[in-house]
Each structure stands twice: as C-alpha cells, then as structure tokens.
C-alpha cells in the first residue's frame, strides 16, 4: 500500500481503535465491554503490524486480545454467578459505581494518558538504542533484535516478567477455599465423548503444537518468542482439557509445579552462572545462542502452563 490508500487505511484503523476503546469504556453491559475490549486488541495488533513491529503485533494478538479476553470473559461469567441470585434477569446490567469513584478513575486514567502523550511529544529526535543494539547483535546469540534485547541485553526485565506471571498464579490460587485445595483446577469440563468438542480437540492440537513450537524456534532469528509460542501452547492444552481428552491437573501436583517454576529457575540459574563469570545475566558470545534457546524453551513451558492455569482458575465451588 502506498500514498493515499495507505493514509486512508491508517486513518480508518485509528478511528476504529478509538471507537472500540470508547465503546469498551462506555457500554453499560459488562459482557459487551469485554467484547469491545477484544475487538480493540485486534485493531491494535493490526496497527502494530502497520508500524512494522511484528513481535509486538503477535504479542498483542495472542496475549492482549486473546488471553486477556478469555480471562475477562471467565471473570464476567463468575461475577454474574456470584452477584445475581437465580431468576434475577438483570444479570448483565453493570451496577454503576458511585460518582466519586468514577470521577477519580477518570482523573487518574486521564492524567496517565496526558503524561504519556507529553512524554511522547517531548522525546528528542533520536534513534534511541537502535544503533547500539544493531552494533552488538552479532555477539548476542540471536539474529532477531527483539529477542536479543529480551533475553540478552535486558534479561532482567524478562526474568522479572516471568516471576510476575508466577506471582499472579500464586495470587489466584490463594483465592481457593481450603477444602478445595488438592482438587482439579477450574470448572468441571463436560464434553460429550465423541461429540463436536472432542473431535475439535483432536483435530486442532497438531496445528497448534506446530505453530507454538515454530514461534519459539523462529524467535531467535524472526519475529516470535517464548510469550507468543507459550500462549499458543496454553490454548492447545486448554482445548485438549476442555475436550475431555486429558485430565485437568490437581493444584498440588509436584510435576505441575516443577513445570511452573522451570522457566524462571533456568533463567535465574544461567544468570547466576553469568555472575560467577563476571556479569549477572550476561551471556558469553560463544554460548549465547544455545543459552538463549535453553532459556526460551524453559520459559515457554512455564508460560504455557501458567497462562492455561490462570484461565482455568480455582476449583469449582459447587462440588
């Protein structure tokens, strides 16, 4: 796309993003707000594509629109079960918070947008760290600058991100009641054996596994990586469990917990080995590529398991 058609496309896209965002905030019905949030995420992913940031576009589509959308839909379903007694048909109406709370959140959100906008407009005209990354790409062990930054140059951020994800799951699990502890995570799955869901659960996983592993493997030289691949693998695992082809793991399972901590633990271990050799989280150029692949593989497993368990949630309260 060039010239006028590209400009027209971008203007329409920007209008759609703003419109979807506005509807997500203003629509009264909770489920509708979630739907507009997902639509918003898809449009933002297309915008990242238009900007040439394919890694960010993939992450936005997989995590921002896909996974967060599923989490929010689950939250709405649980909320409506908790807050409205059976037979009450106002289940979808959002109860309006008091005016003070709405005003306060408007002021906070508005100030954050204002500060971000000001920071963006007052940025000095420079290429940032792009040249520094490009100069050191050869010794980073990765041909994809995004992966080089995420695992090598700014390994700290990614290590802490993986720990934050784990902390989120610990926080969610701590909401489970004591007597449910040790039961299978999430709501009971009831797919009919031999039904559509069971067939779908057999048909799609091979494609999903291939795509998930490819995204991780390709991440070292092309757009892709542990977070995008992990999200796809989480979806595959969830699909298999929902189709009733594999049991949902128990929350006390030692094997499951080993998978959950494997990523941060391997990352931290390699970081400490680097500290012995001189720099914490520093990767020696000769071993950088295999080390990055090891970290990415372990992180992918942990991210996939954590995301899937976040979607499953705590055990069904009705026994």
């Amino acid at each position: 796309m060039t010239g006028i058609s590209a400009l027209g496309f971008d203007l329409i896209l920007a209008a759609l993003i703003l419109g979807a965002g506005l509807f997500a905030i203003t629509v009264r019905d909770l489920f509708g707000a979630v739907v507009f949030f997902i639509v918003y995420g898809v449009f933002v992913a297309i915008a990242w594509l238009r900007l040439g940031a394919i890694d960010v576009a993939l992450t936005e589509a997989a995590l921002g629109a896909g996974l967060t959308g599923v989490l929010l839909i689950g939250a709405v379903a649980r909320l409506s079960r908790v807050t409205t007694p059976a037979g009450n048909n106002t289940s979808d109406e959002m109860r309006r918070p008091p005016a003070g709370a709405r005003l306060a959140s408007m002021v906070v959100a508005g100030s954050i947008s204002g500060v971000l906008g000001w920071a963006f407009l007052s940025l000095p005209d420079s290429t940032g760290l792009r040249d520094a990354v490009a100069d050191n790409l050869a010794v980073s062990g990765s041909a994809n600058p995004v992966t080089a930054v995420l695992i090598n140059f700014r390994g700290w951020d990614t290590l802490l991100e993986s720990v934050v994800l784990l902390a989120a799951l610990v926080g969610l699990w701590s909401l489970a009641r004591d007597r449910d502890w040790g039961r299978r995570a999430g709501l009971r799955q009831h797919a009919r054996p031999g039904g559509v869901m069971a067939t779908f659960g057999r048909l799609l996983p091979p494609f999903g596994l291939l795509l998930g592993v490819y995204l991780v493997w390709a991440g070292s030289s092309y757009p892709g990586g542990a977070f995008q691949g992990g999200t796809v693998l989480a979806a595959v695992w969830l699909l298999i469990m929902m189709a009733g082809l594999m049991p949902v793991p128990r929350m006390v399972s030692v094997g499951l917990r080993a998978v959950l901590v494997a990523g941060p633990l391997v990352f931290l271990g390699i970081g400490i080995a680097g500290a012995m050799a001189g720099t914490f989280l520093g990767l020696p150029p000769t071993y950088a590529k295999p080390l990055i692949l090891t970290i990415e593989a372990a992180l992918t497993l942990s991210i996939a398991a954590t995301l899937a368990l976040l979607v499953l949630g705590t055990p069904d309260p009705s026994p």
Partner: peptide, 13 residues
C-alpha cells in the same frame, strides 16, 4: 480451512 472448522465447532457448541 481453520476458520471453517473453528466456526463450525463453535456454532455447534
């Protein structure tokens, strides 16, 4: 093909 399979399954469910 994938959209067909996914849409068909979701519609059934």
């Amino acid at each position: 093909a994938l959209a067909l399979v996914a849409a068909g399954t979701t519609a059934q469910l």
